Computed example of a mutant assay.
Amino acid sequence: MNTTRWLGALAAALSLAFAAAPAAAQQDKSIRIMVGASPGGGTDILARLLAEKFAADLKQSVVVENRPGASNTIAAELTARAAADGTTLLLATNTGQAIAPHLLKLKFDPLKDLQPIGLVAVMPNVLVVSATSPYKSVKELVAAMNDKPGSFKYASSGVGSTQHIAGEAFGLVTGTKSIHVPYKGSAQAHIDIIGGEVNMMFDSTSSAMGQIRAGKFRPLAVTAEKRSPEMPDVATLAEQGIKGADVQTWYGLFVTAGTPKPVVDRLTAELARVLKMPDVQARIKGLGGEVGAISVEQFSDMNRGEYERFGKLVRDANIKADGS
């Protein structure tokens, strides 16, 4: 099927969904991409990239709606409770899908109430400090943390976020103690790192690369199995003798469960097409990540596997919803 015919088929499928939607939905046929973090962070950056491409292809308005808080689950719940017509999408991370459900009492089931569309990207997390920080290596940082236990603060984009989990895992394997300071998104946390209010952050590369390139953050380690192509000189934690603290952030697109299968299939195909665009791939790689290149079935299995893996980690580390 050529592009023109394919887009016509997608528009027809969405039209069928709109016909069955409530009157309010018919008055505004724009597509919303819900984001559980503040503007300026990694999730927001990717959501706006997708919105631009989707709008051009689908010939209709696609808007990004930021609903930060509660470990990305506010946006997720709004998507889960939306009309199942394909007009409300969620750009989720493993924070809201796999970690928060084990810490918070949710009014929805992320595995049952949200239908996977596809994996967008996987980003390693990176341990960063302010460019003005006295610590120039992980070894120096750990030594200082041991000298003054409990006096260091690390930021995250919220309780139960991958940044939070990475910080706790780092503390477990290094035997250090630090104070967790949660924010409603990475962008807000960056201000306090640069200002010296907090000492460090295990941020996703999608959020941190801008500050690193601007010379405001100093990257000390990548929390992944291999180095980031965008930071080839920054060693992994394992290369620096710290094993067992690797945490990555993945971003996936979801739609309300119960959305008609033809609409789900078309959205999955559209995402796959967008992710093959050279400029989209370059943008994701420029953020230090890898483009999602698995089937929706594989992503569904990954989503469930991550839910189970992080549930065990939360229990083993005794992580609580109060940030401890």
Rank of each mutant, 00 (worst) to 15 (best):
T3E: 12
L7K: 11
A11L: 05
A11C: 03
L14G: 12
A24D: 08
K29E: 04
V35W: 00
A37G: 12
S38F: 02
I45R: 14
L46A: 10
L49H: 04
L49C: 12
L49V: 09
K53I: 01
D57V: 01
D57R: 15
Q60E: 10
S61I: 04
R67M: 11
R67A: 02
G69S: 01
A70R: 11
S71R: 03
T73L: 04
T73I: 05
A75F: 04
A76I: 13
A80C: 08
A84Y: 12
D85R: 04
L89C: 09
T93W: 12
N94H: 09
Q97F: 13
P101G: 05
P101N: 04
K105E: 11
Q115K: 13
I117Y: 14
P124S: 12
P124Y: 11
N125S: 09
V126F: 04
V138K: 05
V138W: 07
L141W: 03
K148R: 13
A155N: 06
V159N: 11
S161H: 06
Q163M: 10
A166S: 13
G167E: 09
G171Y: 08
L172A: 15
G175Q: 06
T176C: 13
K177R: 12
Y183W: 05
Y183R: 02
I191T: 06
D192C: 04
D192Y: 01
I193K: 00
I193P: 00
I194R: 00
S204F: 02
S204A: 13
T205Q: 06
G210E: 13
A214G: 15
F217C: 00
R218Y: 03
L220V: 05
T223V: 05
A224N: 09
K226S: 07
R227E: 05
T236F: 01
G241L: 10
Q248E: 14
T249S: 15
W250N: 12
V255T: 15
V255D: 01
V255C: 06
V255K: 01
A257R: 08
G258E: 13
T259H: 03
T259E: 01
D265L: 12
T268C: 04
T268S: 10
M277F: 14
P278Q: 05
D279A: 14
I284V: 14
K285N: 06
E290Q: 15
A293G: 04
V296A: 07
S300N: 06
R304M: 01
F310N: 06
F310P: 01
G311F: 05
K312D: 14
L313S: 05
D316C: 00
N318H: 12
D322Q: 02
D322W: 00
